[in-house]
Nucleic acid binder design. Structure first.
Lengths: 356, 356
DNA sequence: ATCGTTGTATATAACGTTGTAAAGAGGTCC
DNA sequence: GGACCTCTTTACAACGTTATATACAACGAT
């Protein structure tokens, strides 16, 4: 000993720029590196005396384990990625909060990828841009098709969210869209409404959500003995407030406007609501309105919004649990498709009365 | 082919469970490990012939670099953490989206920590739970005081968001709260309102935001020659919709209710708005309402919400840039406090007219 | 005394990557 | 034909951690 390890000629400074590692702690405590590691990891067979000495040294040097090194050694990182279109779409924001919380309960950290619903971005995510850094992926794709996902070569465990891929290449947590949409539409019909519009149909290959909810809407109309008027089915480009507002405007300009609207998500509904109120319509007196997702905004608007409420907590927990099972190898073989609960929450936009 | 890849004792299958590394690629391509590394990293001096062979091998084995190993070797991870109270508070959701986007432009990935505004959680974050895994931290604390943060022993670069810590131990991106609050209140006074309430005062040590905005409110009243009526200053526990709704209810029950309200954020304002409409008040005719943050919800409610709009894009960019400068060592020494732009956005809740 | 048995502590070898220094392979120039 | 380039490739040593296998002590029980 004695030889300076750095270019400093004499008297190596104790806390040089160098980060302190197990080695430094070991030297100070006068034990082996592995013993320090044992203390850090709470290994049982360490003498109280030794443990104390080591802990003292750790404190003195302000040692923190290097997670990169640990990850490398262990072959896993304790990080999972959550890939969503955009973080400030309330539905995804709420989901992200719950996923982060659920992951934390299992000792996992969440890293967020925003795809913007962009196909190229989504492909990158599926292909594992962060390979070997994340142990698993919870993915809510917007643009990718089942074929895209099947072509995936990365073998990082993955759980899919949302309703897009059936019989896909990965475990899958999903809401029963058809049934839920049918319930919502059935509720509107039950209020005596005859001209029930739908906002949220989508044409492109990726619009699976829209297709399923539209199917439920159609079923409900048939069951209620109502005709399906294609002019009451409004397509949208995306599921944002602005799209809902525009679609509602188009519906109102038609010769025979609707007396109720089922929007395929709450943002569309809030946009539609804005248009209705702006033009002096009374909601629900003249036009009743229902949405899907049960986001917080809908509970505080005026009127409050009737909506299909998927159990987001359940979705998050299941997603993390399924992923953990794959990561640990506890689950192997055939992919699973799990349906989560939902319920229709009736509020002022279809039932309540506006304050006079 | 033929031999099952699982648990077969002899005849090690070519693609066993083991992950492929540079070594495997090198063997297949008949070159050294370093050469493969050079190809992967786009090093200039590689023969096209060699490069092609290596790339072929990479494709064949479906090789992906192990980021943990790279991080260990390089001493940095390319990951920064963003710590916010909750991801589904719209302001933080919007901020998170922008931070993630800004980070991506600089080749960084964002890992999210949710503190829930919990003091213990925030201390952990400040102390660097993820030391050596993150290169930097963007932190929006709620409960921590300047002293707490000064006591920090972790030396991971950090940038603070929000208005809480002045002359603190880290770079700091901040809105000019006093001025902004004054402008908003001044606007209300300019409408001829005499009894202007404030919702959002906070008592505890951490309520710096509330204190600053309250100071601005008081200044504006003085400038307008209006008396400060302490009964019109409503304290809240948190800045959520429910708190705003409750505070508004209390104000309305007083003997001499307000004819305008400045809420210290938009969620409070939306909650207050709900209470007002529920009780049949007309906004803005009877009570004018202004908020702070300019979240998306406020632009689609009825009436739309007048609010102070901080430049969130600028906040995010600055935060990431300041952090990158610290991480790279380009910036050293004294901490910086940078103010971002804001403007008052006047909408229906103070100026427009409700549709008849 | 001797032999296990149990409890502590250690030396060494990985994990997969990149920086360093140096070796080999061609040219070009006198 | 040798000396000197430049371009390409390589072997080896880190980075900081944990698993494995082993050494050393202390203690009863033979």
């Amino acid at each position: 000993m004695g030889e300076p390890t750095r270019s400093t000629p004499s008297e190596a400074a104790p806390d040089d720029r160098r980060r302190v590692g197990l080695k430094d702690v070991a030297r100070l405590a006068g034990v082996s590196v592995k013993t320090v590691s044992n203390v850090v990891n709470g290994y049982i067979h360490v003498t109280p005396r030794t443990r104390a000495r080591v802990e003292q040294a750790i404190k003195e040097l302000n040692y923190r384990p290097n997670l990169s090194a640990r990850n490398l050694r262990l072959g896993r990182s304790g990080i999972i990625a959550l890939a969503v279109p955009e973080l400030d779409i309330p539905y995804f924001a709420e989901l992200a909060r719950l996923v982060v919380a659920a992951a934390e309960e299992r000792g996992l950290t969440v890293l967020i990828d925003q795809t913007g619903g962009n196909r190229h971005r989504e492909q990158q995510v599926a292909e594992g841009i962060r390979d070997h850094l994340i142990d698993g992926l919870i993915f809510s794709p917007l643009a990718l098709t089942a074929d895209d996902l099947s072509a995936r070569t990365d073998d990082t465990p993955m759980v899919l969210l949302g309703e897009r891929i059936h019989n896909g290449p990965a475990d899958h947590v999903v809401v029963h869209n058809v049934a839920a949409a049918r319930e919502a539409t059935h509720h509107l019909a039950g209020l005596g409404r005859r001209r029930i519009a739908a906002i949220g149909a989508q044409d492109d290959a990726a619009g699976e959500t829209g297709r399923l909810r539209l199917a439920g809407y159609r079923q409900a109309l048939e069951e209620a003995g109502l005709p399906v008027d294609e002019r009451l089915i409004a397509p949208v480009d995306a599921y944002h407030r602005a799209d809902g507002a525009r679609a509602m405007a188009r519906l109102l300009e038609s010769a025979d406007p609707p007396d109720a609207v089922f929007c395929f998500n709450d943002l569309l509904a809030l946009g539609a609501l804005r248009t209705l109120l702006e033009r002096g319509y009374e909601v629900p007196a003249q036009v009743a309105l229902a949405g899907f997702d049960d986001i917080e905004d809908g509970r505080y608007g005026t009127p409050t919004l009737t909506t299909v409420s998927p159990d987001k907590r359940q979705i998050s927990r299941l997603a993390v649990d399924l992923l953990v099972e794959r990561m640990s190898g506890a689950a192997q073989g055939a992919t699973r498709e799990i349906y989560v609960d939902h319920r229709l929450v009736v509020r002022e936009s279809t039932a309540g009365r506006l304050p006079s």
